[in-house]
Design a protein around this nucleic acid. Structure first.
Lengths: 206, 206, 206, 206
DNA sequence: AATGAATGAGGTTTCATTCAT
DNA sequence: TATGAATGAAACCTCATTCAT
């Protein structure tokens, strides 16, 4: 038998197809939701047959997991945060929000489709929290802690500060999905304001 | 004959049943999602027949609209904000977050089920934005503006401040749905931190 | 108790309502068919409640029977034929077709709705044949027979002649329902041709 | 490998199944009517799953269209009429009625089911008229015209003669559906009488 | 490995009929 | 007698999944 194709080539091909399917699925899920998207839709968009999908994923739910894992692989929070340490706190916040923007722009569809299901699918929710949120919180907490220790930021409870930052992130994403005009068109300025507010507060100048 | 009731016995009964169905639906939607909830489930939970549901709602989608409308009716943002004006800015923030907490606790299921669909249903999304978000933004903006003018809070762009507040609100709700430990168990303290951060910033004390 | 309303007044009222319902039903049945017409549709068109329909008819099928019976009551074939005897054969045919036209114009909807169901409802079909077709055939046969005996028409088998006439009648009705242009717009002339053809044949003049 | 079949094994199989479903549907529709026949009934009779029906037809209505199209494909009116030209007028009529008989016997169920719906379904009605009746009328008119010109039949308006013939055809079919004894048991003789009447009229012999 | 026709469970929705008022 | 809300069986149709090719 001809075993000319080395295992790795086949693997690479498989990875490509898997990615094709995931992209197609994520876009459709974001557009019309997980449940309104049929496997036939996905097959069509990914230009494979329905059967092929099942060669790469156990079932439709597994596609969501696949998307989530893809999101996970794209995250390099630790590296990002390490790189950010030299920045001062305000610039850090700005760069955080900028990164968030880029990240979201890149994975918009995936995020949107996953979040929607997470809200109403306890199993997926837990997996998402464990796999993506919890590690992020951990890293961010450490980062914030070290900034507090180094006197860059005030002595608030780090775990609270982290929740505030993450909440802002999710909330802004949500407003963006809702196509809020200000969030869409004045993003950069809004990011600046946000950083300023977080850094200096809204208290009137003395 | 007891003709004390003007004409509305039937009307009142209808309203009760409608509410029964909406409550049942919202709980189930939040629990397992709109699409995993069958009309039979709803009928069972509301203790009516499936047919009866369709005497009160055009179709299953209409139930979501119904839930949204209920959320809308529950909102009395204008009154809330008017009452809040005497408070100073920090107390205002705290009371905002508290109200949010109460409001959410009350309508948790409804909010959760609606938000999930909104993320992937453009039609519902627009309706939600127009009916619930946009008016809230408007009122909050006015409120913030008057506080700026009266010198209670610093001169940031009001429309940006409002987005920040709303984002925080959504984000915290999201973390709560994700059952984040800190958000769940330290809510009051977290609210306080949030208010402090927003008010005074995270900048180290001078 | 006040028994002021004499039995007959009540009866008359009942008859009127029954007729109202039958008319509404027949029109709707003809328009969109028996099965696509809901009892609610009928109630609306007849300006009564759905419940009231069931005070006058056992069930929906019974409405069709009611329509058929109405058609039956409208028929006065015996009298018509008796009156027609003095006419010569050709004029008789013309007057037959004319009467058919009038009759149809009057009961168009009822006929249409009943015929449709008859084609696919064996029970109704038999009833229709027994109650309406069979008697007509009988009377027509007698009539034709007496015309043959009196030498007005040629000695064809009367039962065959009758089938031919009745077939023509049904067929023309069918073409009219199909909105055939010629049948609709040149009816009178067509009737004349038909009578001529039946009377003198299409054989070329000697 | 047997690659004798060009590419159409699948296609042929599809055609067979489609036909299976159409036959099953037509029989059931004729037996109990379109609306009293469930897709489950059809699936059972055609020995396929309900889902399979929807792989071949868009919806239940589409089945009727399918039946109509089948009727249309079976019609070869033009050829029939061309072949009939050499016959003299009376024999032509007889052969027409004979062909009608055969045709009907063959497609009885389909015709019956389609006609029933046509009476109460404007959309289908128009389609039927355009696709089946109108072309037949056209061909028949031409045929009759040429017979008139060649002196085979008398100078009646061809479009009227055609309506008469078609009406007779429909009417006789209708009586047959009604199981009229004479039409069923004396068909051949009835056909002969009809031809004679049409040809020579019922006018008494001179 | 890829395909896509076949499947059938199960979902939403309709609607004839009932019955308390 | 008239009403119309409540019912629930059953219809049509969808779609995730399988499997022979």
């Amino acid at each position: 038998m001809n075993r000319t194709i080395p295992k790795s080539r086949r693997d690479r091909r498989a990875k490509i197809i898997k990615r094709l399917i995931i992209d197609a699925a994520a876009n459709l899920f974001a557009e019309k939701g997980f449940h309104r998207t049929t496997t036939k839709d996905i097959a069509l968009a990914a230009d494979v047959s329905e059967g092929t999908i099942y060669n790469y994923f156990d079932n439709k739910d597994d596609l969501l997991i696949g998307i989530m894992e893809h999101l996970y692989e794209e995250e390099h929070f630790d590296a990002q945060l390490r790189d950010a340490l030299p920045l001062d706190a305000r610039d850090f916040l700005i760069s955080e929000l900028e990164k968030h923007k880029v990240n979201v722009a890149h994975n918009n569809a995936m995020l949107q489709s996953v979040l929607s299901e997470i809200l109403v699918n306890p199993k997926l929710r837990q997996r998402y929290y464990m796999q993506l949120i919890s590690p992020s919180i951990q890293l961010l907490t450490d980062h914030v802690l070290s900034r507090i220790e180094s006197g860059h930021i005030r002595n608030h409870k780090p775990q609270h500060l982290v929740r505030i930052i993450i909440s802002l992130t999710f909330g802004l994403f949500f407003l963006q999905v809702l196509k809020d005009d200000v969030v869409l068109s004045e993003w950069d300025e809004l990011a600046l304001t946000t950083a300023n507010v977080l850094f200096e507060g809204i208290k009137p100048n003395p």
